[in-house]
Nucleic acid binder design. Structure first.
Lengths: 220, 220
DNA sequence: CAATGTTTCCATCATTTGATGGATCATTAA
DNA sequence: TTAATGATCCATCAAATGATGGAAACATTG
């Protein structure tokens, strides 16, 4: 029994899938309240009743978007985990920052939707928090700050949250922050990565910061 | 010629001022789109036409809220500047974190409104960005990372932004993050402050982090 | 008090928005 | 071919929403 989401992904040219894609972009750009079903239908080029036929009410469509989103993020975490395995802590952090920045920068609606989920009291009951809790724990383990999901200290969680949120902030807020920084679009991502590494790596490693790749003496 | 805002603040019991207060809270909680003029009027206990009489259209009221907000923030920055003067860099950062966390935690709608302003494409043209650019530069100077507003490097700005956003994130996202951390309401603010100091001070000072108050040799 | 200005509310509009029923067209199975 | 199922659109609804006109209440001042 394939879920509606799997069904939609199987055929990306179907209207059902195109609705999901457009909804993702528009919800990310204008939020749940700021996006109307007519906006989505118009973006796809269909009638709104087709949208309702495929996804039910607006909140259901939004929920589908969020679930779809989280699966994409989990994929990225697996990539980070694979690349980070066996490297030094400083390297692992650098890899995490690079991979997440690149991924989110390519699909900016992701970070927008996540941030809106964190900060707006929405009546919809998409259980985003459980997912995020899992993500946080996963990063903590991948960074070697904890050994299993059940034993992550609040301190470690809070530190990961800061890192995670900082990435989201910079990606989502690009149109707002970039003019303030006064750099062009290509330089922005580099400044962001550099800043995050500069600020966060020394604290985690308790030492000198970036300092190149995988020093021979693998200080833990 | 007193501005409408000054006029409203002069008499906090007037309906005009009470509308502004309620609007501030509700816009902060539900965003611009998610807040209706009827919600605000109902919160104050008046008819919506009274609201329109005092503040004009909805976007004008929102603009007044944002302006009001920014003046409050500027006041806090002056407090930080005064307290930080003459202290070590680590102390100045610690003071900034403490003061801003306490202030924002007392009026959480402030950080919500700021974050919504950063991340949602709103059609309203409240020039929030210029204000924020000024705030960023002010902190940079107060922290001793720059000497005048015109000569703040993108790197310094980006680092301040990370700090500033991290505070906003934790305060605005408390209802979301606190359950994940598994701490109670009173402990949350302490964990946040501790985390921010732990992560950010070492990077700025290039050294050992918090390490107590104002070391005798005032290393720059 | 009378006149003038300010504030408040009631009634009402025009749009927008979420949502649905039913007709139509396409596709597939028997 | 025919019946059934799936997909799409048109027309329409009811509720919510931003906004306004005008009458009434209230306050201020000469």
């Amino acid at each position: 029994m394939p879920s509606p989401l799997e069904k939609a992904r199987k055929n990306p040219d179907s209207n059902k899938a195109r609705i999901l894609t457009a909804a993702r972009r528009l919800f990310g750009e204008y939020g749940f309240q700021g996006t109307t079903t007519r906006m989505i239908a118009k973006a796809v080029g269909i009638d709104i009743s087709t949208l309702y036929y495929h996804w039910g009410e607006k909140a259901d469509l939004y929920e589908a978007v969020i679930i779809d989103l989280n699966e994409g993020i989990e994929t990225q975490f697996k990539i980070i985990e694979r690349q980070a395995r066996g490297r030094s802590l400083a390297d692992r952090l650098g890899i995490a920052i690079d991979v997440m920045c690149d991924y989110l920068h390519e699909s900016p609606e992701v970070s927008n939707l996540l941030l809106l989920g964190y900060f707006s009291k929405s009546k919809n009951e998409v259980s985003l928090d459980e997912k995020v809790a899992g993500h946080i724990a996963n990063i903590a383990i991948a960074m070697g700050l904890a050994t299993d999901k059940q034993h992550v200290t609040p301190q470690a969680k809070a530190r990961i949250m800061t890192l995670w949120n900082s990435v989201l902030n910079f990606i989502s807020g690009e149109s707002f922050f970039r003019p303030i920084l006064g750099v062009d679009k290509t330089a922005y991502l580099d400044v962001v990565k550099e800043t995050l590494k500069f600020l966060l790596i020394p604290a985690f490693t308790g030492g000198t910061g970036e300092g190149g790749s995988t020093p021979p003496g693998n200080r833990q």
